[in-house]
Nucleic acid binder design. Structure first.
Length: 1005
RNA sequence: GGCCAGUUAGUUAAGUGGUCAAAAACAUUUGAUUUAAGCUCAAACUCUUCGGAUUCACAGGUUCAAAUCCUGUACUGGUCACCA
């Protein structure tokens, strides 16, 4: 007896998982005789929470592709590994005193156990872990190759620094200007001759080379997070606070490693054209790179001190130069102090102070706020000598373009607002396109008030102006990118150490034979606070000799992830990062599956490293991923309590006090609405405050931090809406589904040991109807949100095959969707129904009879659809097709080998365990992985007659069967003669009859 | 706010001009089986006087023919966010 029951499923799945491992069926070898196919998942960060149901979504999809390609005859590389360096392990170490190496290994083991249960066809012999010295030896090695490279703009590729030195020795740097245009030599020049080069001392030479290296050390503005004691990447900062923890982030100058990715901006942009990423993904990358084409224009300056003769602006609209009514310079711009007039000094100082006081968060939150100050200086329009006032304002960014702009209020919205706010005149150069109230950034206008440009369409004006500027030597065409060089230093322990040695502050590459530079053992992971990372605490390790020391920083997690797909090709090579033969054979990743949250950083760095390695001749492709699929997130419902912060003022007290109060959902909404809508909401807000006052007076609210005395005389209570407000919890119960309310288990919550909420014991709770209703929202699954669903539970109840089918059936792969197990029965029933086709009363029973034409049609229709759907990554529809097929064969009572055997192969990528079992029952000794995917045959899909829908005035009224070879005229005759049509025409001749062969007949009356 | 994508039955979701009252699954209801529940099987699931009528966010348009193409509106999601 073998029903597809829970016990049977476990038996089958365990049996095959073990057998796959024993027989090493997933072992991949290089085989030039076969075409290769490389299917890659974004490797996971092994978090302590383990795998949740969102992880496998992409893995299942890629596993289906891998298995499918294998039965299609490809030699498939489908590896898995772990992105194992990173901040969370280090934080965990600080909190729990467990070394990152240990917790990381534990987490990896847990991940592997969970992954193993889902039946993925990974070749675990190729596993990589970025924290393994055998692996990061090569991360360091590649870093050194980048360090030893510079970008030759003439050839548009990276070259060795030795080449550059040769050039300097023979002709100086006249052919290759400093990439950083602001850099100056000691003599304030930016060019040197070969003679000068040779005269420079070692330190100067190294400094100059550093200006060219693709991995370079420089003082850069970084996002410094005091609370985490470390620098964060731009994508780790969200709305001015850290992605992890939500701590404030400020700008700070530090000497850091950077990768000169800006040199590759154009190639990264161009490369997008030849790779198959989704349009939105490409758009995000283009956005990030942020190319804009315009011109640099020099304006002469008239200022009291006359120190600065001119200023340069960057504009994408040089043709609007006659519409310039003011100039705006970034407050941080170095020329500000030199152009400010005595009369305006006070004004400017006041404004600079204001800018300095503004936090990053405020600046971002108040984007619309207009502010600025006049310097007292004037720029001169080179074409009409008009005097243009020079202002400063924080809406102009120091780091982009030249840090100065020309203000054209009639064409630019921000400039327009600025002009309005400060009552500056607005010159209209676009005629009727400017309506006097709003700027119009049109390109369509014919220029007016524009001297030699009058009458020209704006588009043509651009080239005319640029030409003129160039003739006069006061401007050139200029391309700018928003993208900045990538900060590559992290003040952390758990990462790759930089393989360099500083001698008298000059970094030198370590020799290859000395790699890897292993991470020294340590149990102190706390940042030193000075801005240096934890490694600075290890004095013996850092200081090698009197003039020699190591770098105390480590690389970001992006480093290990920037090239791991190459290591999979040859993971045990200890002579090279990967052997040339393997690199050439496996080549690009054919399909890369992962989340869109890595759209920018990871993908760009991986593309960058690939391009550098290609330029240096190590590999023969310069884009790593041919095709990218972004699976959607599986979301979960997270529940949280609202933490409202009130400030209480009372007489004689030490000041104001801010007790903690958790307000139930209804109250929270009342309070919040009232802050938005004063007219109607005021009353609700007052009520909430009154209630709160009562709670305090009745001494119901206490905190550990503040003592409340009875009979306290409260002067004023104010609600502080800017305070962080959510505390996530799993201690919420849904009592009745209709109201959608999650009720907090208050007792448990008060004793909750969660670190983020240790003050819970003496909570003030503002209840509604004696219950605390939690807020809830659908969000990405994450341990920190307590909304994680574990796949182990599903496998326990239904088996891995059902999980695989179900996750694929949920909807389109690229779409995000909330997790719910409500439909999982359908997937399970489908497998059972499929299984039952092969069984009669639990016994395997198959017929060798010839299949009928109808059965063959079902088979080939399914094969065709499934094949097409897999190629299109439309797995939900292929599952649906299998369901239709199983339903049809069930009603045909088909148990014929000729039909079912090919179906087992076709289903094997989706449900490998059950497929193997059935395959074995057919008498096969070898795994179904070595079978051949059955090719569908069109001849079984063809019909020789067609059931024509007969529509009258576009509405289908009847059906008539005609041969597909019947002529239009004959069909028309037959249709018009038919009873049903005669009934509608009532004897009258139709206006028109449309016959579309093989489709439809339409009679128009 | 800019850009991009989307809006289909109670739910998830297929469907890029005709074979569409719209696949598949879930949920719901009914019947068979069962002592019963579950499972399984069969069927119903916009309205209907059984002729048909009205439907794929809303409003227009193109066409012999529109869920599908075009225009506008509303809403939802993603993404970037003072980048000159």
């Amino acid at each position: 007896m073998a029903e597809y029951s829970k016990d049977e499923i476990r038996k089958i799945e365990d049996k095959w998982r073990n057998r796959w491992v024993e027989n090493k069926v997933y072992k991949t070898e290089l085989d030039p005789a076969k075409p290769k196919y490389y299917v890659l998942d974004m490797f996971p960060y092994p978090s302590g929470a383990g795998l949740h149901v969102g992880h496998p979504l992409g893995y299942i999809a890629s596993d289906i592709v891998a298995r499918y390609k294998r039965v299609k005859g490809f030699n498939v590389l489908h590896p898995m590994g772990f992105d194992a360096f990173g901040l969370p392990a280090e934080q965990y170490a600080i909190e729990h005193g467990i070394h990152p190496a240990i917790s990381t290994q534990e987490n990896i083991q847990n991940f592997k156990r969970q992954l193993g249960k889902i039946g993925f066809c990974y070749d675990w012999d190729r596993e990589v872990q970025t924290c393994d010295p055998k692996y990061y030896k090569w991360t360091q090695w590649i870093f050194l190759q980048i360090f030893d490279s510079w970008y030759n703009r003439k050839k548009e590729k990276a070259e060795r620094v030795a080449e550059l030195i040769k050039t300097f020795e023979s002709e100086g740097n006249k052919q290759h200007a400093f990439p950083n245009t602001k850099f100056r030599l000691a003599n304030d020049k930016d060019v040197f001759t070969s003679v000068e080069w040779k005269s420079f001392d070692e330190k100067t030479q190294q400094e100059i080379l550093m200006q060219y290296r693709l991995a370079y050390l420089a003082y850069t503005d970084v996002n410094w997070c005091e609370a985490l004691g470390t620098v964060l990447a731009n994508d780790e900062v969200i709305n001015g606070v850290s992605y992890r923890g939500g701590f404030p982030v400020v700008k700070r100058q530090m000497r850091q490693w950077s990768l000169r990715i800006t040199e590759y901006a154009e190639r990264l942009l161009k490369g997008l054209e030849e790779i198959d990423y989704s349009d939105s993904m490409k758009e995000i990358q283009r956005n990030w790179i942020g190319k804009s084409v315009g011109a640099k224009v020099v304006f002469n300056l008239k200022s009291e001190k006359a120190i600065v003769p001119s200023m340069t602006v960057f504009t994408t609209r040089p043709e609007t130069i006659f519409g310039v009514d003011f100039m705006v310079v970034a407050p941080e711009h170095e020329m500000v102090k030199d152009i400010t007039s005595a009369a305006q000094q006070g004004e400017i100082d006041k404004y600079l102070k204001y800018v300095e006081s503004r936090s990053e968060i405020e600046r971002m939150a108040e984007v619309k706020k207009i502010s600025g100050a006049f310097t007292g200086a004037y720029a001169i329009n080179p074409f009409n000598n008009k005097q243009i006032p020079v202002w400063i304002s924080e809406y102009v960014l120091a780091g982009y373009g030249t840090g100065a702009i020309m203000g054209v209020p009639c064409g630019d919205e921000r400039d327009h607002k600025f002009a309005r706010h400060f009552n500056l005149p607005i010159t209209n150069i676009i005629g009727k396109y400017y309506d006097g109230t709003d700027a119009n950034p049109t390109y369509d206008a014919i220029l007016e008030n524009s001297d030699f440009l009058n009458g020209l369409p704006m588009r043509e004006g651009i080239t005319v102006v640029v030409k003129k500027l160039e003739e006069l030597g006061i401007g050139t065409k200029q391309i700018n990118y928003k993208m900045r060089d990538a900060g590559w230093s992290r003040q952390r322990y758990w990462g790759e150490p930089f393989p360099v040695i500083f001698r008298d502050d000059i970094p030198y590459a370590m020799e290859e034979k000395d790699l890897p530079l292993t991470l020294p053992p340590s149990d102190n992971f706390k940042p030193s606070g000075s801005g240096e990372g934890p490694l600075a605490n290890l004095k013996e390790w850092i200081n090698i000799g009197p003039h020699e020391r190591r770098d105390s920083n480590t690389m970001p997690t992006h480093a290990g992830a920037a090239w791991y797909f190459l290591r999979y090709m040859d993971p045990h090579n200890d002579k090279e990062f990967a052997g040339r033969k393997s690199l050439d054979y496996w080549n690009q990743v054919d399909v890369y599956v992962g989340g869109s949250e890595h759209a920018v950083a990871h993908l760009l760095y991986a593309r960058l490293w690939t391009k550098v390695l290609a330029d240096l001749g190590y590999i023969n492709f310069d884009e790593p991923f041919k095709k990218l699929i972004n699976q959607g997130k599986i979301t979960g419902i997270s529940k949280f309590v609202y933490r409202a912060v009130f400030r209480v003022f009372y007489p004689g007290g030490p000041g104001d006090i801010t007790p903690l109060l958790l307000v139930s959902k209804g109250h929270y909404e009342a309070i919040n609405n009232s802050t938005l809508d004063e007219a109607t909401g005021e009353k609700m807000f007052t009520q909430a405050l009154d209630q709160f006052k009562k709670l305090i007076i009745n001494n119901t609210i206490e905190t550990n931090n503040y003592e409340f005395r009875q009979n306290i005389d409260i002067l004023e209570i104010e609600y502080n809406s800017s305070h962080p407000i959510r505390i996530y919890t799993q201690l919420a119960i849904q009592e009745d589904k209709s109201s959608n309310g999650w009720v907090l288990d208050i007792d448990k919550f008060k004793n909750w040991s969660e670190k983020s909420w240790s003050e819970a014991k003496n909570l003030g709770l503002f209840l509604e109807n004696d219950r605390y209703i939690c807020g809830s929202s659908i969000e990405k699954m994450s341990k920190s949100l307590f909304n994680v669903e574990n796949p182990d539970d599903v496998i326990e109840a239904y088996g891995a095959d059902t999980l695989r089918i179900y996750e694929m059936f949920l909807g389109p792969l690229e779409q995000s969707k909330p997790w719910s197990t409500s439909g999982i029965d359908g997937s399970f029933k489908f497998i059972r129904r499929f299984w039952n086709l092969f069984h009669d009363n639990g016994n395997f029973k198959i017929s060798d009879a010839e299949p009928t034409r109808e059965e063959l049609k079902v088979l080939h229709k399914t094969l065709k659809k499934v094949e097409q759907d897999i190629e299109n990554f439309s797995f939900n529809t292929s599952v649906s097709e299998f369901m239709i097929c199983a339903n049809e064969l069930t009603s045909l009572k088909c148990n014929k080998r000729a039909i079912l055997e090919p179906l087992v192969i076709a289903l094997s990528p989706f449900a490998p365990h059950v497929a193997e079992e059935l395959w074995e029952k057919f008498g096969h000794k070898d795994t179904v992985l070595n079978a051949k995917f059955p090719q569908y045959d069109e001849q079984y899909l063809k019909e020789n007659a067609f059931n024509y829908p007969i529509s009258i005035n576009g509405k289908v009224r009847a059906e008539m069967k005609f041969g597909l070879d019947m002529s239009k005229e004959d069909i028309e005759k037959n249709v018009l003669a038919s009873e049903i049509v005669l009934k509608w025409t009532e004897g009258k001749a139709p206006k028109k009859v449309i016959v579309v062969p093989g489709r439809i007949v339409n009679v128009v009356l």
